[in-house]
């Protein structure tokens, strides 16, 4: 088992190193003209352009920049943003933003799991019945109507109906309600439909039919057999979901004016903010890779039949 973990850990570290190296190198291929507006590009003479580029540190050779990046990183210095938040410490930017994304994603996760899973179970138990139909209608509506329309509807009309704030304010908990609802709508549907599907699949299997014939109660079968098997494909994503709580939602954070992580990577790429892009890529790739790694481990606890090695130690 230990060997398996070490091997997986090694693979994870190599993957992260490769991702960072590739992104770092690709960023250096971006033309430096992107750092200037059209007017600046023509208005500034070469001396001024060079001075600016030197001031943001992009004139050094790639290897020198990589060395500086790694040395600083090893001292816990994430560096400074170059263009998106000029000169601001990246650690300050992230600490300002991560808390909001974590907060809303955690709320949404809890709401989605507590509504989506019972809904999925209820739909499966009442397959073909009114709850199933209503649940399916909800899932189809959420999946088929463009999300931006639903979010606008929630923000403008629901806020009007219940007199809730349209924008988020940290000191006003009532303003947290609508963003949480908006963030949860899709994942409630996701949890519900997948859980329903897995449960229905399991229920049709022979061992369940046999258990029923044996005279076990429906609830016992559901909890001890069906749910435990059905949760496995969903549970594998729990660690990733948890680690990636820090990644915000581009649309919803924008809509409710939540200053979180949503869209930060896209904005930093557009602004050619190499320093910020590197840190974000490093952070997200690390969390994603470890999310998968932990998912494997977690699922082996949820379902003891799953072994991570060919033969038991």
């Amino acid at each position: 088992m230990r060997r398996y973990y070490l091997s997986k850990l090694g693979q994870a570290l190599v993957t992260i190193a490769l991702v960072v190296l590739v992104v770092f190198t690709l960023l250096r291929f971006m033309p430096t003209t992107g750092y200037f507006t059209k007017e600046e590009f023509r208005e500034m003479d070469d001396v001024a352009k060079n001075a600016y580029l030197r001031s943001i540190g992009v004139l050094d050779p790639t290897l020198v920049q990589l060395k500086n990046f790694l040395v600083k990183l090893s001292h816990g210095d994430l560096g400074r943003s170059m263009t998106l938040y000029p000169k601001s410490q990246i650690k300050d930017i992230l600490s300002d933003k991560i808390k909001y994304s974590v907060m809303f994603n955690a709320f949404s996760w809890i709401v989605s799991a507590f509504i989506g899973m019972p809904l999925g179970i209820a739909m499966a138990k009442n397959k073909g019945g009114p709850i199933d139909s209503a649940g399916t209608a909800y899932v189809v509506a959420v999946r088929s109507i463009p999300s931006i329309i639903i979010h606008f509807f929630v923000q403008v009309y629901v806020s009007r109906l219940f007199n809730l704030p349209m924008l988020f304010y940290i000191d006003n908990p009532r303003s947290w309600i609508l963003p949480t609802i908006s963030l949860s709508l899709g994942s409630i549907a996701g949890y519900a439909i997948w859980l329903r599907r897995y449960i229905v699949d399991e229920e049709n299997k022979d061992y369940i039919k046999f258990a029923r014939v044996k005279g076990l109660s429906q609830n016992y079968i559901m909890v001890r057999h069906v749910f435990r098997n059905a949760i496995v494909p969903i549970a594998i994503n729990f660690p990733s979901d948890f680690l990636l709580l820090i990644s915000g939602s581009l649309i919803i954070e924008g809509l409710y004016s939540i200053p979180g992580m949503g869209g930060l990577l896209i904005k930093s790429i557009q602004a050619l903010d190499n320093n910020l892009v590197q840190i974000l890529v490093l952070m997200f790739s690390t969390l994603s890779v470890f999310g998968v790694f932990l998912g494997d481990i977690f699922v082996s606890f949820v379902d003891p039949r799953i072994k991570l090695t060919d033969s038991p130690e």
């Binding site: 580029l53 001031s55 943001i56």
Partner: peptide, 11 residues
Amino acid sequence: DPAHGAKNFGT
């Protein structure tokens, strides 16, 4: 100081 990279300094 060019080290500060003021873009509109030319004005």
